[in-house]
Structures are given as C-alpha cells and as structure tokens.
C-alpha cells in the first residue's frame, strides 16, 4: 500500500486570522489523507496555552478589519480555528507539538499546560527533522 504523503507546518502565529488559514490548509491536507505534523512556535504556543485557547480575535494582521472578518466568518458558518484543528485531528493523522522554549516563554512547561489538541512538547531538532522528511512544508 502506498505510504501517505506528509505535511509539516511551523505555526508561529497566535493571530486568529492566520490560525483560520492554518485550519483551512490543514483540512485540505487531511482530506488528501496526508499525515500532518504541526510544530507550534512562539505566538502559536500562546494561542495553545490552556487559559488562552478561547481568547481569539485579540490579534490579527489587519486589526481594522477584525470586525468585518469576524462578521463574515460567522455569517458564512466558518468554524473557529480550534474547531478546524479538532475536526482535522478526528479525521486524520494530525499531531501538534509545542516548542519547549515557546511554551516556557508563556509559562507552560508540560503538555498538560496546553489545550487538549497538543500531543507533546518538542525540541527544534524534531521540527527540522520532520521538515526534512516532509513532502510539503510551510510556515504560518
């Protein structure tokens, strides 16, 4: 049987607009039966911190468009980034690894300090190794 293609994503953002983009791309990869590893770096780790998981919409690339974006997203029935990630994980082989340094920056050292989507804490070597072996690699 042919092996699944692999996608590796470095998720550095905690900005809800880019997290939605990541969720949409992740969904497409899962639909294609790709195995996905997401390395949650810097601000991504902030968004994944347990107490911050629901705090979306506090940051985006164009803050003046936040209201318009949120209204459109809601009226179009587009899921939240957490819902995108959760569905993708239910449907496919998706792993989320929190960068140890990024976690510590926001006061999280154990995987249990982050929302349930997080699979483990990782070092940067694991990310580089994953990226080297990926068919698709991207940074958001």
């Amino acid at each position: 049987m042919e092996e699944n293609k692999k996608m590796t994503m470095a998720l550095c953002t905690g900005s809800f607009d880019k997290l939605i983009v990541a969720g949409i791309i992740l969904s497409g990869a899962v639909a294609e039966d790709m195995d996905v590893e997401i390395y949650v770096l810097l601000y991504g780790a902030y968004a994944f911190k347990k107490e911050n998981g629901a705090k979306i919409g506090t940051s985006s690339e164009y803050p003046e468009l936040n209201r318009e974006l949120k209204n459109s997203v809601e009226s179009m029935n587009i899921p939240t980034w957490v819902d995108f990630f959760t569905t993708a994980k239910e449907l496919g082989n998706v792993k989320f690894y929190i960068c140890g340094t990024a976690g510590k920056i926001w006061g999280g050292e154990k995987v249990s300090d982050f929302i349930d989507l997080a699979d483990d804490i990782c070092g940067i070597g694991e990310y580089v190794d994953s990226a080297q072996n990926a068919d698709v690699h991207m940074l958001i």
Partner: peptide
Amino acid sequence: RGTACPGPLLAAKK
C-alpha cells in the same frame, strides 16, 4: 450547502 470550503470536502471525506 450551509458550509464554505473546506466544509463540503471534509463532509464528503467523512
């Protein structure tokens, strides 16, 4: 019909 891309694709996959 109530969902935008990638909703229909994921619904089809399910």
